[in-house]
Simulated assay, not measured.
Amino acid sequence: MEISLPKEIQAGLDAARMKSLRKASKLRIDVNGTQHRVLRHWKTGFSMEAETAPRVRGLVDLYDGSIHLFQCLIVAAQREGSEMQFEFKRATKVSQQPALDFVRANDAPVALIAKGTPV
């Protein structure tokens, strides 16, 4: 059974949903130095407001507030109602430390004390 609502009520519900998504989300993307708000994020993509969404393809940086989360490679975008949904091929997690090219032992020394250094 399908329930249909009058257009005015449906438009009001959609506007309230978008307002709550805008208010709740701290996510944003950075495209060539310009920042755009992200409404939702899932494992393989994210969505933005269709009216303000840029036409992006390629690498973008995804932030949660000031924390750099991912560098994403966007390959597809489609409009779904009042949202523009972007899908990415990969999302590389950003690390605050440089990548190691070797396995660090659990009992490895933290620092080196030179000979003659007062302890």
Rank of each mutant, 00 (worst) to 15 (best):
A99P: 08
F46Y: 02
M84P: 01
E87A: 13
K43W: 04
D107Y: 04
L5R: 03
R40T: 14
F88Y: 13
K23A: 15
R40M: 08
K43P: 00
Q35F: 10
A99C: 06
K89A: 15
R55Q: 15
V110F: 10
W42I: 06
L27A: 07
Q97I: 14
D64C: 05
S4C: 04
S47E: 05
L21R: 06
A15N: 07
V31P: 00
H68R: 05
I113K: 10
I67K: 10
V103F: 09
I3V: 13
M48S: 02
P54A: 09
L100S: 10
K7H: 07
T92K: 15
L62P: 00
Y63C: 00
A99N: 10
N32F: 09
Q35L: 09
Q85I: 12
D14K: 09
Q78T: 11
S25L: 03
A108I: 00
C72P: 00
D14Q: 13
A11Y: 02
R57H: 14
N106R: 13
A16T: 05
V75Q: 14
R17I: 12
S95L: 11
R90A: 15
L69V: 05
V94E: 09
A24F: 10
A99K: 15
A114H: 11
L100A: 11
T34I: 12
K19V: 03
K23H: 12
I29Q: 00
A53P: 03
D14F: 04
D61V: 08
R28V: 02
L5D: 00
Q35I: 08
D14M: 08
D101P: 05
